[in-house]
C-alpha cells in the first residue's frame, strides 16, 4: 500500500479491506447488514490500488481525516456495478 504513488496524495483517504470477522465486528454495533452500507464500485481506482484484490461483497474501511472532525471511519460495500 505504501509503495503505490496513488496513496501519496493527501486527498486520497486510506482504504482497508476487512475480512469477514472484522466486518461482523464493525457492523454489529451499527445493527446493519452489509447491504445497508454505502457502495463502492469494484472499478474504483482506490480498490485497484490496494495490495489485495477486492471482490464484490467485500467491505472496505475508509480512514478519513479532516482538521475539524479528526479521523473518521466509513465503510463501503464493494459492488461490481
Amino acid at each position: 500500500m505504501d509503495n503505490n504513488i496513488f496513496w501519496l496524495n493527501k486527498l486520497v483517504p486510506k482504504h482497508v479491506l476487512l475480512d469477514d470477522s472484522e466486518i461482523e465486528k464493525r457492523l454489529k454495533p451499527l445493527q446493519i447488514e452489509k447491504k445497508q452500507l454505502p457502495k463502492i464500485l469494484l472499478k474504483d481506482p482506490a480498490l485497484k490500488a490496494l495490495d489485495q484484490e477486492a471482490k464484490p461483497g467485500d467491505v472496505v474501511e475508509i480512514h478519513r481525516f479532516d482538521d475539524h472532525a479528526g479521523t473518521n471511519l466509513a465503510y463501503r460495500l464493494v459492488v461490481e456495478e
Binding site: 454495533p29 451499527l30 445493527q31 446493519i32 447491504k35 445497508q36 452500507l37 454505502p38 478519513r64 479532516d66 475539524h68 472532525a69 479528526g70 473518521n72 471511519l73 466509513a74 465503510y75
Partner: peptide, 20 residues
C-alpha cells in the same frame, strides 16, 4: 439514536452525524 444518519430504506448515509 446510534448517531448514524440513515434514509428511509435504513441504509447508512453517514456513520457519524456530520462526521463528528
Amino acid at each position: 439514536y446510534d448517531g448514524t444518519v440513515r434514509n428511509t430504506a435504513n441504509t447508512v448515509v453517514q456513520f457519524k452525524y456530520g462526521e463528528d
